[in-house]
């Protein structure tokens, strides 16, 4: 009888205590601000994350690793013990769940094709910072490594520069992905003429500068269905004129096939102001913001 008791207690304990990856996100609320705003008769759900003091950091998972761990599993292992602010699906993928365009994950090449379709190249540094470059301008600069920090790399125009960049990303364990560059240096980069006419809920990631020059990463969710062009144009107007922010760059976050988004309150509970329709486990790539 005693053994039965012991086994029952053991079973009960293992069933109620998750054995790993207990994610209890907690962060300093002074760095994260959430709001829902009506601007020009349109709804904007906004999460602002201040990069001041570099406490809010970014991590991107571009693909499964070579050990067969999918993005969800990788995220699970990585996020254990971390204070997650939000997690979202990232950029585009093809029907084989491979990222479209150049993708380097933590220094490992996932897709080496520099696509002609996307002008945005996003670099997520191992230190948690994120920058973007317009490939059309051919003036990409990188920090660290054996590359001259002032050298402007034209990775689309020069095969040599492209190779230099790949080598740099590998050495620095950087994460790189290509995407639609919707706004760059506060100017709209998407055209209303040759962009898709499909309407959908839109979600954008904008890296902005406030009037004091502080860098703020902003997630803007547009629940109303709009085209990518209309959504981007109106969001730029909203950020410029309602939030008084200058947009350094703005990219699209997938709300289609992999609509994953989870935002946590400061105490670790889930905030439903912005929520994706798909479960986190279905994510093909993930962009995570965390507090450290």
């Amino acid at each position: 009888m005693r053994y039965i008791y012991l086994i029952s207690i053991l079973l009960l304990t293992t069933s109620i205590v998750p054995y790993k990856n207990i994610i209890i996100p907690k962060y300093d609320a002074a760095y994260v601000e959430v709001s829902s705003v009506q601007y020009k008769n349109e709804q904007y759900n906004v999460i602002c994350m201040k990069r001041k003091d570099e406490k809010i950091k970014v991590k991107y998972f571009a693909a499964a690793d070579f050990n067969g761990n999918n993005v969800y599993k990788r995220y699970g292992n990585w996020s254990a013990g971390k204070n997650i602010v939000l997690v979202s699906s990232g950029t585009y993928m093809d029907n084989n769940y491979n990222p479209v365009g150049l993708a380097i994950d933590n220094g490992i090449c996932v897709n080496k094709t520099l696509s002609n379709d996307f002008d945005g190249l996003v670099i997520v540094y191992a230190t948690g910072g994120m920058v973007a470059s317009n490939l059309k301008d051919g003036d990409l600069t990188v920090k660290g490594g054996n590359v001259d920090n002032n050298k402007k790399l034209d990775i689309r125009g020069s095969a040599w520069d492209f190779q230099t960049f790949i080598k740099w990303a590998q050495d620095q364990e950087a994460t790189v992905f290509q995407t639609h560059l919707l706004v760059y240096k506060n100017g709209l980069k998407i055209s209303g003429i040759n962009s898709s006419v499909k309407t959908a809920e839109r979600r954008f990631l904008a890296v902005c500068k406030d009037d004091s020059g502080n860098i703020i990463h902003v997630i803007v969710n547009r629940p109303d269905h709009t085209t990518l062009y209309e959504g981007a144009k109106n969001t730029l107007d909203f950020l410029n004129n309602y939030k008084d922010m200058e947009v350094i760059f703005m990219i699209n976050l997938d709300t289609g096939y992999q609509d994953v988004f989870q935002f946590y309150n400061k105490d670790g509970t889930i905030n439903s102001t912005i929520k994706g329709q798909k479960d986190l486990s279905t994510a093909i790539n993930l962009l995570a913001y965390y507090f450290e």
Partner: peptide
């Protein structure tokens, strides 16, 4: 062959396939 060499082209699904 391109995929094998990690130079994948985005050959996406049609709407029906999606």
């Amino acid at each position: 062959r391109c995929k094998e060499k990690q130079f994948g082209a985005p050959i996406n699904n049609s709407n029906t396939e999606k």
